[in-house]
Write a protein that binds this DNA or RNA. Structure first.
Lengths: 187, 187
DNA sequence: TTATTAATATACAGATGAGTATATATTATG
DNA sequence: CATAATATATACTCATCTGTATATTAATAA
């Protein structure tokens, strides 16, 4: 567990989010991380490799964070679903929020054959399945449909917020989520 | 109105969508368009300039298309809102659909000071206002709120569809839109 | 036909991109 | 202390990036 390796991952993640992936050169990454290219390529076999690990870490961090929030603040499964958007709000309004990594990555790597695109799509699917699970546990019949709706709403809200900070979109996303959850609960 | 200028715009738009903006060099654009860099720079003062015009054209084309669809297929304002998602579906399931240009552009140019990002944000806002107008004309009181919800849903659906073609997300986006419109209509 | 102007092609400049060969410093092990 | 292995630094290759200077062709005007 090299400390420098972690530093590179952290710096790369930050730069990718604030400047874009393709616009961030490895020279910039190592300069900010206070190391050299040789060290970077000792730890990662290519820039693509680094991108993939940054994405994987980011997604895991997000899911861990959300999981903890849900477990600490709710008891019953149905409560999780209802409070979900509160935590999404907390996440997107945090000062250091810079968008959802896999959404941006898929935009920068549109080619479906690209490894980065594939991982992004997988993470998107994984998030949807996470939501579907919450819905299932809450006893929703059409859990898959609701999870799709919620994921679209959430990704749209993230989009809106990263496009313009403080857009207020999340406020209406919460209302919409409540309506959709209520509707799905009644069937 | 140079034919070559139009050709360059068309080719650039295509390449930006399929390979990404930053990953597409001007050399590639002129090669595909069958011309040279000198000609490109006679018509556009920089690559950024070309990007901005491609974005502007794309957005206008989309809005013109949607407008025509709505005007040709609906009569009453409330009908427009109800059929909106049908046309969005038609748009995202078209074989040559490659995503919403301004969404991708804002991901590739995350810096809020960037001209490309600014234009993307403006187009996003413009689309939302277009939806708000539809809602207002349909007699919805909270037109702004509904338009935000619909735009998030639509952008989320576009995201889902460009992430994975044939995802089926749009089907549930339509159901969600109907629920949200109905709810907003009742207040 | 000749002079002038506009458009195109070739070739280049200078910066930056990813990735590596070689050399030095550091650390662990005998 | 000496030796082997690992991590870091310097310096480089080669490709590609945006943008331009110059040369050549095509078209227009006198």
């Amino acid at each position: 567990m090299s400390a420098l390796r972690e530093k590179i991952l952290h710096v790369a993640s930050d730069l990718f989010q604030t400047r874009g992936i393709n616009s961030t050169g490895v020279d910039t990454i190592v300069a900010v991380a206070g190391t050299t290219k040789m060290t970077l390529y000792k730890h990662f076999k290519s820039k693509e490799d680094l991108i993939l690990e940054v994405l994987a870490r980011g997604h895991q961090d997000f899911e861990n964070w959300l999981n903890e929030k849900l477990n600490q603040n709710t008891k019953q499964p149905s409560e999780k679903l209802q409070k979900l958007l509160d935590f999404i709000e907390e996440w997107v309004t945090a000062p250091d929020f810079r968008g959802m990594a896999f959404i941006k990555a898929s935009a920068e790597f549109p080619n479906e054959e690209s490894a980065v695109h594939k991982l992004s799509a997988e993470q998107s699917k994984h998030f949807r399945m996470y939501l579907a699970n919450l819905a299932k546990e809450a006893g929703i019949k059409e859990a898959e449909g609701l999870s799709l709706q919620l994921s679209m709403l959430i990704e749209g809200a993230i989009q809106a917020e990263q496009m313009k900070r403080g857009s207020g979109a999340i406020k209406y996303a919460k209302k919409a989520a409540k309506i959709l959850i209520d509707t799905a609960s009644k069937t």
